[in-house]
Design a protein around this nucleic acid. Sequence first.
DNA 1: ATTTATAAACGTCATATTTACGTTTATTTT
DNA 2: AAAATAAACGTAAATATGACGTTTATAAAT
Lengths: 245, 245
Amino acid sequence: MKFEKIPNISVDCVVFGYDTITKSLNVLVMKRYLESETGSEVLVDDYVLTGYHVYENETLDDSATRVLKELTGLTNQYKKQFKAFGDPDRLTNEKDLPWIKNEGFNLRTITIAYYFLLKTEEVDLKNSAHQKKWFPVKDLPELGFDHRHIILEAYEDLKIKCLAEPVIFELLPDKFTINEVQDLYQSILGIEFDNRNFRRKLINKKYIIAIDEKQVGVSKKPSQLYMFSKDIYKKIFQKNYLISI
Amino acid sequence: MKFEKIPNISVDCVVFGYDTITKSLNVLVMKRYLESETGSEVLVDDYVLTGYHVYENETLDDSATRVLKELTGLTNQYKKQFKAFGDPDRLTNEKDLPWIKNEGFNLRTITIAYYFLLKTEEVDLKNSAHQKKWFPVKDLPELGFDHRHIILEAYEDLKIKCLAEPVIFELLPDKFTINEVQDLYQSILGIEFDNRNFRRKLINKKYIIAIDEKQVGVSKKPSQLYMFSKDIYKKIFQKNYLISI
DNA sequence: ATTTATAAACGTCATATTTACGTTTATTTT
DNA sequence: AAAATAAACGTAAATATGACGTTTATAAAT
């Protein structure tokens, strides 16, 4: 394996996680901070996506997987390459220049952007060199480069994706309630569903399996817990070629 | 505008066209031919997608548009960036090596792949330096590099896209019959629809407009011609957040 | 122990959409 | 004028969706 970096090609990872408490779809970003040499002035103070150069002897997918692992320690998460970003001016905002000068970037770098879906509780933010933080996709902090743009495009892609494929379950704990699924759909899509209709629709799916277990520690009627069976989904799923234009 | 090529970044264009006569979804590819220096041996003889390096001061989209223009003379066609391809070995098949040696490629080139949808009759294959040819996506010739792979991924993306957006009309003449639309859907999706149901569904759309004109030169009852109004579509279209998992 | 509050869960009906067919119509060819 | 044929229209059952009202299980309060 050659570990030479390709100087002008990178991957960037938009990591989505869902907070069932605040019912917020979040993005994991990394603190970026730089002071002037004298330390008297803060040159850069914002957040960026995690990304890195692609190595000479590495596939793009492997590169993204590697970056995610360094960020979260996790492998085998849902991953999608959704778009390449390569505008000539994507790294040349005024506020990014000190950072670039410091890091020795190639100004014309094309980045292949991926998004990941994972269960928030699997990520340990403590044990890490970098300062990482979750932000609601609806309330992002100041972001460097074109990273806000990249996140928003990832989010648009996710919106479409979750209507056509059961990716929603990648963001939920293994055991979940119907209402949690509904809340998550609502967070992502920004619309509300009728709970009775939503519930009926989901429960009728063969791959949504009621388990012999109920929510604990709630001060009201505890919910029935369910699981998603990817195996059953794959078996019974048949593409409906419904033209919805 | 700097016309310096970025040596390791290219765009490749999958150009789709539809042949209403043969009812075939076709891809436009370019002949690739190379003889040994003595002329005694054919080193390369197959087809490739059209692509080119991205220029230093050019967006990826502009780069793709430029390549399409050089290939077809056309601008303003439907265009979608659908995936980046960057496996380390994507250009290093045995049969591609003589070509690469001849052209002076960078062996680790990442390509940003686009597909275009256009009306076959608008393309003039005659007046061009290169030898270009349409092939059915279901019956592709021998292709160089990873271009078969790229075409098949473009095709998969198109299949999904045409179910959700009215891109189908990019592939048809301005005036078309309902049956032509159905045939095209069937060619793309590889399934059959009931003509009576398909017809009703389409005719009920406000943006499918019957014009005061009928097919000519047919030896049976001539079909009613229709047009697609993108304006009306944009006005009345409302996203249905139908979860179909 | 009983009541109260509340979220979970079930039920019903009207409407819209899809699926699966049969029939009629307009045109060219014979 | 008849025959052939693709275009175009029609209908009924099944399924899915949307919009609501009601019941149930539990913890907390009385």
